[in-house]
Design a protein around this nucleic acid. Structure first.
Lengths: 145, 145
DNA sequence: TTGTAAATTGAAATCCAATTTCAATAAGAG
DNA sequence: CTCTTATTGAAATTGGATTTCAATTTACAA
């Protein structure tokens, strides 16, 4: 937690940017956040305790996190950009419940290797990828029969 | 070509919808299209010969193709919905050049199997997935050194 | 501390693709 | 041919992303 904060502050000062109370509040809320919040998710969550923090500030701050490498933006095709902390695993993909939106992170070196192989077969240099599996989670299977 | 047109006409009449000259023109252009056009791509292409066909009509018609199963919509994260004909291969994913946007379709049963395995491991029932590999194509590698 | 230049903030405006509205027009069943 | 219903195109609307701008705050220097 504090480590992340230190990294962010360092990144800011390196770039001549400033450490503000809003940025601290947003960072704390983001790190405390379990899931993969969108700008709006985080904005609404902050609203309660910090009604003075505007949407634009949340938006800009999340983008800044991503530029500083402490968060990564994701597009799961639901029309909103989501962010996740980059702390834990280096790389992973997502298994998403189509009903409730629950997200499980997974990592499979065999799939990574196959992607590399496919790119090579076509003469491409692999840069990045995006891989989402959509399904129904155990809870929703029970709920929906 | 004509086969697709027949399927589309059948689908329309089953739903009480009408076969119009605009729909024919758009279908022809779509099938003649090589790549994965967005609504705008197709609209601009048609503009030349058919300046009377509006954007909204292209938009609605592509959506209709997708509902009738003769096209599928794709989101490659470039901010535009793209469509591809569903004729050829049943399922495939995409290898996309980050520089020029060139798209290669690929299919790998080993990856499909691994996805199934991952979903099962987490108790999910697999429904669909989205898998894009982004890289640099041979031509752009040469061009960019 | 205090002054000041530069960054930040929040509200509102703007952007852009997607989507809808609506009055005029066209399809097609009877 | 007629009449009902779907379609069309232009324009308006929606919704998230992004920018603008005047007021405010930070960081650093004196």
């Amino acid at each position: 937690m504090q480590e992340k904060k230190r990294i962010f502050r360092d990144c800011l000062s390196e770039r001549g940017l400033k450490w503000t109370s809003q940025r601290e509040v947003i960072l704390d809320a983001f790190l405390r956040c379990d899931s993969h919040p969108s700008t709006e998710d985080l904005y609404l969550k902050l609203r309660k305790k910090h009604p003075n923090i505007g949407y634009a500030t949340v938006y800009r701050t999340l983008k800044l996190f991503s530029e500083c490498g402490i968060a990564a933006s994701r597009d799961f095709g639901d029309g909103q950009t989501r962010y996740e902390s980059t702390s834990e695993a280096e790389h992973h993909d997502h298994l998403i419940c189509k009903d409730c939106g629950a997200i499980v992170e997974f990592e499979d070196p065999r799939i990574e290797a196959l992607q590399e192989e496919i790119a090579r077969q076509h003469g491409y240099v692999l840069l990045t990828h995006r891989h989402e599996i959509f399904g129904r989670c155990p809870a929703c299977q029970k709920k929906l029969g």
